[in-house]
Design a binder for these strands. Structure first.
Length: 718
RNA sequence: GGCGCGGUAGCUCAGCUGGUCAGAGCGUAUGAUUCAUAAUCAUAAGGUCGGGAGUUCAAGUCUCCCCCGCGCUACCA
């Protein structure tokens, strides 16, 4: 194992609250891992923070009529508070709007520039002439080409979730002024990712970089490596690391052409991990550098699957391009959590919000954590249901775990006034692990030791569900131990047996009080209190317990006095579940009520009328009537149809993006309007000799412009 | 269209490099038990491992084709 650990969780974006999908994806697994490492006496730092830049925040601010600062302050507080209440034990929860972060990322940028890692390139981007500025993807809205949502953003349609680029939008318009943007050249710095492709491929697939074995690929999840190779095989392209924005980290001012340029959020956000570490070190008066630069540090990024490429390819490339930094030893990305059969959605309010959960179900933090871990999407998408939450809480936490703790403590109070009895270690009894096995105290302590080690191994391999299962096996074995030996029956006839069984049962409970800490930190604290043991400080207590057990020593010594027994968990009543389900149904209904109203044809969005042109300009267009003779789908393209159009004097091959609006067989014979003197363009290997003119309705649906009664082919449209 | 990851008992999910891999938890059924919040313990389910073909002495586990879900990506003058 490495000497020290640096663990990061994806920086939450500060334009909305935290939901259970975030928790299950990147925060809970990291928290378990970190708490475990601390209990094992490891040097570990766990950093996170709010990602507070990027256009989505400024767009939201504009919509709500407030400043970006107000937005990020608001959500930073909500998110930080939610983390704290649900027990995510960051060493620091930083924010990317801090000056320290700005300095850190600017220094990074300078260094990359100095190392020749950038290429400054000019490209055409949408520019808002009214507002006088370039428009980032999020500043452009238009009709989604996929689902016809009239308010899709330039990078993504929030309605159907499609990833878009601004040029794909139909009728693009600026959110700043509402006007139609124009294309203008602008210059940006591109990271030469293509030059990093080879070493990344080797590093991902063999774990080797610069001839050194840095990690074991077999330890990485399939879907992580698969996704990376998918990207690598398509060839990495230079990627712009700057944007034209007014909110974010400035491109350092001394660099020419830096005016009005900000660092791309995806560059600035992961550097946030570094800034957070620096701030943590400053607060402690220690050196941050070993955590990022020493080969004996294990860097681990916990993220959701949507961040894989960034954390496994682009950020490592950036770290290497800078030089001097270590690379992540693993990126255990989780898949997605669904809620009651549907994808979590912030915009549709289909979520369980963490800040609402802790307010509505106070004192049940661990119940949520337990359920999240039990259904953690480690290898594939998984599902959270309130019914499942209730069931596992009531049967596994209340029945099995809390029940075991309570019964063994009650029995101790009844028989020995709550004091751990001394035992005769040679006494034999039935093992809780197997009804047919006769065992001894020492053998059972060894078995417990073995189970705890096994649990630890699962955590070390990021198998948190399995680790939790093993934890619960200890509780089940404790229940079985009591069941098989029935101490309540033999208190009078065989007091020595009762002592051994209860003492051992209490050792299980004591072991659980430490071992459950990574998963159920609040309950672990409560249990320590019940057992009258010192509060956990997350400093090698599990390691100490393991060492004692390995020596054959019990964790609780004879004559130790317990506090009164209490239940660790309470049942979740039906009403609570019903109320939560009701809440989700209300959200669903609210969506259904607004949803049908929108596509209803009324909501036509009008693009502003373009600049005036002269008649001569118009006369340059040669528009003709024509008839479709043949139509077929273009291979390997979802939207293209290959058409043969008769213009009377000749036949043309025209490729048109209408496959999602028309079936090929249905349009043969249709009369259409053709722009006949458009320069030919090759699409998907087919040369298109013209363009079919189409009209668009409010939903973005395209239809041909055709005559009512027919006309000859090749006629001019004037 | 391409690529990636999945599609295993009613439900939620494990099954690494092919040969006790047909599993766990929950639910359900039966029995035991009463120390414990009707909690606990034991036993049971007969799921053709999405469908089809193939390789092999042997395939959820490898190859090919098809279907479905999720994610990434391309085309749209």
């Amino acid at each position: 194992m490495k000497k020290r650990y640096l663990v990061t969780s994806a920086l939450p974006y500060a334009n909305g609250p935290l939901h259970i999908g975030h928790l299950a994806g990147a925060y809970l697994p990291a928290d378990i891992y970190v708490r475990y490492l601390r209990l094992m006496g490891k040097d570990v730092v766990f950093v996170c923070g709010s990602d507070e830049h990027g256009a989505a925040i400024t767009v939201r601010a504009r919509k709500e009529g407030v400043t970006p600062r107000e937005i990020v302050d608001k959500y930073h507080a909500i998110i930080r508070d939610a983390f704290q209440k649900i027990g995510i034990a960051f060493d620091i929860y930083h924010r990317t709007s801090e000056p320290l972060h700005h300095e850190t990322s600017q220094d990074f940028f300078r260094k990359l520039l100095e190392n020749g890692q950038f290429e400054e390139k000019e490209s055409d981007q949408y520019f808002d002439e009214t507002a006088g500025q370039f428009l980032a993807d999020r500043y452009i809205v238009g009709t989604c080409p996929v689902c016809s949502n009239p308010d899709a953003y330039g990078d993504q349609c929030e309605k159907c979730g499609s990833t878009l680029s601004p040029t794909q939008l139909i009728n693009p318009r600026s959110t700043l002024s509402g006007s139609a943007p124009v294309m203008r050249p602008t210059s940006h710095w591109y990271l030469k990712l293509d030059e990093h492709e080879n070493w990344l491929r080797e590093w991902i697939n063999t774990g080797k970089a610069d001839g050194k074995q840095l990690h074991e690929p077999a330890e990485w999840k399939n879907h992580v490596i698969g996704q990376c190779n998918s990207w690598l095989d398509q060839g990495l392209q230079p990627r712009a690391m700057t944007r034209d924005l007014d909110w974010g980290v400035d491109v350092p001012h001394e660099i020419p052409h830096s005016a009005g340029k900000k660092l791309y959020v995806w560059l600035d956000a992961p550097i946030g991990y570094i800034s957070a570490t620096k701030q943590w070190a400053l607060d402690r008066g220690v050196d941050w550098e070993p955590y990022w630069k020493d080969n004996d540090t294990a860097l681990i990024h916990f993220i959701g699957k949507d961040n894989i490429v960034f954390h496994c390819l682009i950020f490592p490339a950036i770290l290497k391009a800078h030089g001097g930094f270590i690379l992540p030893v693993n990126v255990p990305a989780n898949q997605f959590l669904n809620l009651e059969g549907a994808k979590l959605s912030t915009s549709r309010n289909w979520a369980v919000w963490v800040h609402e959960y802790v307010a509505e179900l106070p004192g049940r933090e661990d119940e949520l954590r337990y359920n999240m871990i039990k259904n953690m999407p480690e290898q594939r998408d998984s599902e959270f249901t309130w019914k499942g939450f209730q069931e596992s809480t009531n049967t596994e936490l209340v029945g099995n775990l809390a029940g075991f703790v309570h019964r063994v403590m009650v029995l101790t109070h009844k028989n020995y006034t709550g004091v751990i009895p001394a035992i005769d270690a040679s006494r034999e009894f039935k093992s809780g692990w197997d009804a047919d096995t006769i065992s001894t105290y020492d053998q059972e302590l060894h078995l417990l030791h073995h189970k705890l080690e096994e649990m630890g191994r699962e955590i070390e391999h990021f198998n948190f569900r399995d680790a939790l299962r093993i934890l619960m096996e200890i509780s089940s074995a404790g229940n079985a131990l009591l069941q098989f030996n029935e101490p309540w029956k033999i208190a009078g006839s065989d007091p020595e047996l009762v002592k051994v069984v209860l003492n051992l049962g209490l050792q299980y409970v004591a072991a659980l009080s430490v071992a459950m800490r990574p998963f159920l930190p609040f309950s672990a604290d409560r249990l320590r209190g019940l057992l009258n043991l010192p509060a956990l400080r997350d400093e090698r207590e599990l390691l100490d317990a393991l060492n004692e057990l390995a020596e054959g020593n019990p964790i609780l010594r004879p004559n130790h006095a317990l506090n009164p027994a209490e239940h660790l968990f309470t049942r979740v009543p039906d009403e609570v579940i019903a109320a939560q389900i009701q809440k989700l149904k209300a959200a669903e209904q609210a969506n259904q009520q607004t949803a049908p109203a929108e596509p209803a044809s009324t909501k036509m969005t009008y693009a502003p009328v373009k600049e005036l042109i002269s008649y001569d300009d118009f006369a340059q267009l040669d528009i003709r009537t024509g008839t479709i003779l043949e139509a077929s789908k273009v291979e390997k393209a979802d939207k293209l149809l290959k058409l043969t159009v008769d213009l009377g004097f000749e036949q043309r091959t025209i490729v048109s993006g209408i496959a999602q609006h028309y079936q090929p067989e249905a349009i043969v014979g249709r009369q259409v309007i053709v722009l006949a003197n458009l320069a030919p363009r090759t699409m998907r290997g087919i040369e298109s000799q013209g363009m079919i003119l189409l009209a668009e309705d409010a939903e973005g649906k395209l239809s041909f412009v055709s005559p009512e009664t027919g006309w000859p082919d090749g006629g001019e449209v004037k």
